[in-house]
Amino acid sequence: MARHISYKFKGEWKKIPFSYDKYADSYEAVAAAEGIDLTAFRKMEQQVAMTAKGTGALKDYRKNAFVKMGFSEILLLRDDQEPFNL
Rank of each mutant, 00 (worst) to 15 (best):
M1N: 14
M1K: 13
M1V: 14
M1G: 15
M1A: 14
A2E: 15
A2K: 15
I5Q: 00
I5P: 00
S6K: 08
S6H: 13
S6T: 06
Y7M: 03
F9V: 07
K10Y: 02
G11W: 10
E12F: 06
W13Q: 11
W13T: 03
K15Q: 13
K15S: 11
I16M: 11
I16W: 09
F18H: 10
F18D: 06
S19R: 06
Y20M: 08
D21A: 09
K22C: 03
Y23A: 04
A24Y: 05
A24D: 08
A24K: 09
Y27V: 02
Y27L: 06
Y27P: 02
E28H: 04
V30Y: 00
E34P: 04
G35Q: 09
I36N: 10
A40L: 12
R42H: 04
R42D: 02
K43E: 08
M44N: 05
E45H: 01
Q46N: 04
Q46D: 08
Q46R: 09
Q47E: 14
Q47L: 08
Q47T: 09
V48R: 01
A49Y: 01
M50V: 03
T51P: 02
T51V: 12
G54I: 01
G54Y: 07
G54P: 03
G54V: 02
G54M: 10
G54S: 14
G56D: 15
G56V: 14
G56K: 15
G56I: 14
A57W: 03
D60E: 14
D60G: 08
Y61Q: 14
Y61L: 12
R62G: 03
R62H: 07
N64K: 13
A65C: 05
A65M: 03
F66T: 03
K68L: 14
K68P: 12
K68D: 15
M69T: 02
F71G: 10
F71Y: 12
S72F: 07
S72Q: 13
I74M: 04
I74E: 09
L75M: 11
L76M: 14
L76Q: 11
L77C: 10
P83F: 06
F84I: 08
F84V: 06
F84G: 01
N85R: 12
L86N: 12
